[in-house]
Design a protein around this nucleic acid. Structure first.
Lengths: 251, 251
DNA sequence: CGAACGGTTGATTTGTATCAAGAATCGTGG
DNA sequence: CCACGATTCTTGATACAAATCAACCGTTCG
């Protein structure tokens, strides 16, 4: 629908050292000299909500990190059925080194700032920089685990459990909760439309709407303005996910 | 159900150089001296069909490669719902370096031979051997792509499309077809029970049985002895998957 | 032989999709 | 600031694909 906006080069502060996601992104283990090398190949771009950042099949000229905002990774079938396969939050990596053409669409869900690295130089650096490769491997392994949790959700959970799980993941990550801060209450902004949630969960938007309202009616969650969620009883929501509590996604 | 069988140390030929999966496994890029180092930490184990190789929560004393046979990676919910999240074929890697406890169950679907590496020495070697880490990263990235294709299948495909996709994947991989050998016919052994297929596809075994027989009745596939599949018209099967043909899994 | 397992097939139920209409919210320009 | 059109969301009625429940068949194996 939307094309890339010319990409106003925002300055988050061009120094990697000042970067808000520095300690969690691919570059987390890099030393000063390596960060300086990264700075030579990097640039920032901003995208408006709804912009397509990368289209499946595109020749990838860059890879990068999400600095602010939320983007989604998704796949579309010829007849329009769509499945989200990744939710990209700040510090998440975008693109696949060693691959020339993109396999998935990347779309900005909210306004997004991306820290981009030219792909070829980045790949070279990846080869020669153990710190970078180590972090990369770690991140990919985490993503793989997350993808596998997601497969359980898609294949076996009910609509209600899917919604509860999604709220759980977004809530936990936005509040940076560890799996043991269980008795807290939490609030968070659900920066996805019902349709985006449906694409994520393998449901229709109507079912998403109904199940969210059912959880609300049952007192599991409270809503302000459709997108702002309040969870008074964390454990109550956890029960609804069908998980056994220890599980998965903390990050 | 089954426990590990004492693990008869089979000799596939203790030399890595003679190993049938040597060119595709984690060790693919290793040089002679590195292979020799690997040999110091490796051992072979065999498992009977149905054996649990690793249980979720186990303390991982080893990682390794599937040498022969088929194993599955799966997750089970408290109430027994199960979802397979990976199919491990010869040359696939088992275990996650950098993780002490297993997140998923690994079960032998057919008799399996595993080439095991002690985890701690292997992790050390991973840190110090770029060749090994590079291959590891490549393999994990491929798995991640496969997991994401699988998410589309689980979230959005119909039962019939799911079955067709599974047949496609197993057939392609067993026949080592590239995405362009499209007009060939192929035969292959389906080494999964209907139940295992159901767990893989997020279906019930009854639905799997019905859909396989429907594909047979419609002339898309032929069956010999329930598990041996013949695909005369590759494109016909491809159409049934809902994919656009270029897609995914070749390997 | 009988038990256990894997597979098929039928009848029925059910969760979610689909179709449809309308309400709430947002953004934009007059 | 209000009016508008466009999104986004909700809610209801209905349809349908797959799950569930159930019976039965064929093999294998102790």
């Amino acid at each position: 629908m939307n094309m890339n906006i010319p990409a106003l080069n925002t300055k988050i502060g061009d120094k990697c050292a000042d970067c808000p996601i520095h300690h969690r992104a691919v570059c987390a283990y890099c030393e000063k000299s390596e960060l300086m090398l990264l700075e030579t190949m990097k640039s920032y771009s901003s995208y408006a909500a709804g912009d397509t950042i990368i289209m499946a099949g595109d020749n990838m000229k860059f890879v990068g990190s999400v600095v602010t905002g939320v983007a989604s990774l998704s796949q579309t079938m010829e007849d329009g059925r769509r499945q989200m396969v990744g939710l990209l939050l700040p510090s998440d990596f975008v693109g696949r080194p060693g691959r020339e053409f993109a396999s998935f669409d990347v779309v900005a869900t909210t306004p997004v700032t991306l820290c981009k690295f030219e792909r070829i130089p980045f790949e070279k650096m990846l080869k020669s920089t153990p710190q970078l490769r180590e972090r990369m491997l770690e991140m990919v392994l985490d993503e793989l685990d997350a993808a596998r949790e997601w497969m359980l959700l898609l294949g076996r959970k009910t609509a209600r459990e899917k919604i509860a799980s999604l709220l759980m993941i977004i809530g936990k990550r936005q509040n940076s909760l560890s799996p043991f801060d269980i008795n807290t209450s939490m609030k968070f902004e659900l920066s996805l439309t019902r349709e985006a949630m449906a694409d994520y969960l393998g449901l229709t938007l109507e079912t998403v709407s109904r199940q969210i309202n059912a959880l609300k009616k049952d007192g599991v969650i409270e809503l302000e303005k459709k997108r702002h969620v309040i969870v008074k009883n964390f454990n109550r929501l956890l029960d609804e996910t069908g998980d056994d509590g220890d599980g998965g996604y903390v990050t």
